[in-house]
């Protein structure tokens, strides 16, 4: 077996052992969170292991994601039509992981708009997101060697309010008629308003969100949608950095472990229900 895997597994086992020992004494750790702690350690070590393997040269396969492949096509279309690109990074603040993921995608879109000399318009709903987005765009333009094309006002604040923001973005879409609209971040009810308006102006639309209730609306109204974890893998997919690809593989292995656990819980719960075993496996997976 892989030497590094053994080392990591041993390290994990030691941490868990120390945790349970200290738990008994009740000094440092509080009881009731044992399953969660083990899960955190397991997930962390799994991701670290595959990240390390990728850094050492293992080739990681990622299936093609249509929405991410279409990013360049969309920016190219906007360039050909001489129209700007609209990027909406969601309506929540930087405390949401989806907003951070959206800004990561913004970085790549900004690189492309810098390269193709297409206009970029990023209306934001939060001031902190505005600053972070400006930083991201500035770096992207600098990286492409086009700092002259960047200006601060390409990322501008509209309003914090959900529907006022939707109204503002709709107004931008109807007046400026961007050729490509990107919706990447956390959205709520305004998602369909934005997507339908974008559809009405004939823009190519690529959406990505971690809000499960908004995914159907984006799937219906947009040309491409990054569903679920596709949205969160964008950084790894677009950068092609080995360590990020490795972490995606680690994430997939964690998903496999979750599926195995679900099957085990299903089987053992059934056996427990019919009295064939005394083990109530759900108690092992419940944090109090």
């Amino acid at each position: 077996m892989n030497k590094r895997a053994l080392i990591l597994a041993g390290f994990g086992a030691v941490i868990i052992l120390i945790y349970f020992q200290l738990l008994k004494s009740g000094i440092i750790f509080r009881p009731g969170n044992e399953p969660m702690f083990i899960a955190v350690i397991l997930v962390s070590l799994t991701i670290l292991f595959y990240t390390d393997r990728a850094k050492r040269g293992e080739k990681i396969y990622l299936r093609s994601i249509a929405g991410l492949q279409a990013l360049e096509e969309a920016v190219g279309r906007a360039t050909e039509m001489g129209k700007p690109v609209l990027f909406v990074p969601g309506i929540m603040d930087m405390d949401q992981v989806e907003t951070v993921s959206g800004l990561i995608i913004l970085g790549y879109v900004a690189e492309m708009t810098a390269q193709y000399e297409a206009g970029l318009n990023v209306p934001v709903s939060r001031s902190i997101v505005m600053e972070a987005a400006r930083e991201t765009c500035k770096e992207s333009y600098l990286k492409q060697g086009r700092p002259d094309q960047y200006f601060d006002d390409m990322v501008h604040y509209l309003t914090d309010d959900q529907f006022a923001y939707a109204a503002g973005v709709n107004g931008i879409m109807l007046r400026e008629k961007p050729a490509a609209c990107f919706y990447q971040g956390k959205f709520y009810a305004e998602s369909l308003i934005l997507a339908e308006t974008g559809n009405s102006i004939g823009a190519i639309q690529i959406a990505g969100t971690g809000s499960p209730s908004q995914i159907p609306f984006f799937v219906t109204a947009c040309d491409y949608t990054l569903i679920g974890e596709e949205f969160f893998t964008a950084s790894a997919y677009l950068s092609n950095r080995p360590e990020l690809l490795g972490s995606i593989k680690g994430q997939d292995i964690v998903k496999l472990l979750v599926m195995i656990c679900m099957i085990l819980v299903f089987i053992f719960t059934g056996l427990h229900h019919y009295g064939w075993t005394n083990l109530d496996i759900l108690t092992l997976f419940t944090s109090r």
Binding site: V43, V100, E135, T136, F232, L244, Q251
Partner: peptide
């Protein structure tokens, strides 16, 4: 899937692997 994506992204940010949001 979303939950795992959030876990993975958060972990990458916490360990400093993901720095794109800093530019």
């Amino acid at each position: 899937g979303i939950g795992l994506g959030i876990v993975g992204t958060s972990f990458r940010i916490i360990i400093g692997l993901e720095r794109s949001f800093l530019g």
